[in-house]
Design a protein around this nucleic acid. Structure first.
Lengths: 205, 205
DNA sequence: TTGCATACCATACAAATGTCTGGTAATCAA
DNA sequence: TTGATTACCAGACATTTGTATGGTATGCAA
């Protein structure tokens, strides 16, 4: 028999194991839990899991394999790998997404079918909106956006982050920095890549 | 027999179905694919899946249930679920981490053994450092930090985000906003929770 | 025609996996 | 002590699920 552990200790580690696997999109079987914790009986793993379900820390679909889930309907964070792009040239967006320079980062996407990409910000034009050079913005591809949204648009063949302002029949791209001038594209000449839905700043490494 | 569809058409829809499920963290069984497409034979589903694997659109782990995966770009693990805390009271950090109010968010942490938590920022004291109210900071628990680091410390029983400045024998917590005053804790009386390693801002929902 | 490929079906088998029944040992409180 | 609770084990069984083998029908090209 394996060493007896203090009450609740092993269970907490089981919960952590489950969360890691579920968040990574690879729900384990009961026997995989067994092996991960070197139990000599399947039942040991199953008991921990069932208790976690009773405690509300996990949920499960009975009878289905790999059926344990993270609870709390909205809080289950599915992870999508999102391509991190470098410089984006006009028209080359699709290819850039297919074969990203910067690799991929993990994002919790609300809409499951959303087309997302990430972009590293250069320049200080959005500094008053709390977007600094080096920050990464996560963008949902969409052809239109509302006034007040922070968007990514192609200007002179380069992707830039700006605040979208709509007035009457005109569309303007405003920087959030008094040192920069607004951009007013010719009517119907705005190529909008998408809307910024998240900003990230990595302070280490 | 179900209606015969043009070559490749059904397969493309199968791939879409698989992507949705896999991104949602719920890999389907072959039979679930069968039902989703109203095939009357398991094998029909399996053939589509195997061909998708041959084409490189999917990968699979043979013999394991729900073993189909999205190929290529690795979700570079370590991918850790990090507890998102609300208000943190003095001393209650450990319990707050165990049972977080705000659920969990996913973070790619460099050090795998790191103890991390996330905190929702209130107040505007760090606005000049690009940290706005409502932003989420991801914190690595550590008892010390370097001068210039952005840290989370307990001040008057509340967790606050500040810039750490060390001079001689004194430690100061500076806001990044001229409207706020620096905090100078009594010598040895600084309870540092950890260092901010990432800042996130969610612009939707 | 013949041959080949694709899309789908029917049925079976074996492996993976969830579930159950009963047991041992340690800890704690009445 | 007794009883209750917790942590773990052993072995079995039943369902779910991956896999294989062979068949039907349609379209296309030589």
């Amino acid at each position: 028999m394996a060493a007896r552990t203090p009450p609740g200790q092993t269970r907490r580690q089981v919960l952590r194991f489950m969360r890691e696997r579920l968040i990574a999109g690879r729900p384990p079987t009961v026997r995989e839990v067994q092996e991960a914790f070197k139990f000599r009986s399947v039942q040991s793993a199953r008991e921990h899991l069932e208790i976690l379900v009773e405690e509300g820390k996990l949920t499960k679909e009975p009878g289905v394999s790999r059926g344990y889930r993270l609870p709390g309907p909205p809080l289950t964070p599915p992870f999508a790998p999102v391509p991190l792009l470098g410089q984006v040239q006009a028209g080359a967006l699709t290819e850039a997404i297919e074969d990203p320079d910067g690799g991929y980062i993990g994002v919790q996407s609300a809409g499951s079918g959303d087309e997302l990409f990430a972009l590293k910000v250069t320049g200080e034009s959005m500094i008053d909106a709390g977007i600094l050079p080096g920050d990464v913005v996560i963008v949902r591809c969409q052809p239109t956006a509302d006034s007040g949204d922070i968007v990514v648009a192609l200007v002179d063949g380069e992707a830039t982050v700006k605040l979208l302002k709509k007035s009457r029949r005109r569309v303007e791209l405003h920087p959030a920095n008094p040192a920069f001038e607004p951009i007013v594209p010719a009517a119907g000449d705005l190529s909008l890549l998408g809307k910024v839905i998240e900003v990230r700043r990595y302070l280490e490494k």
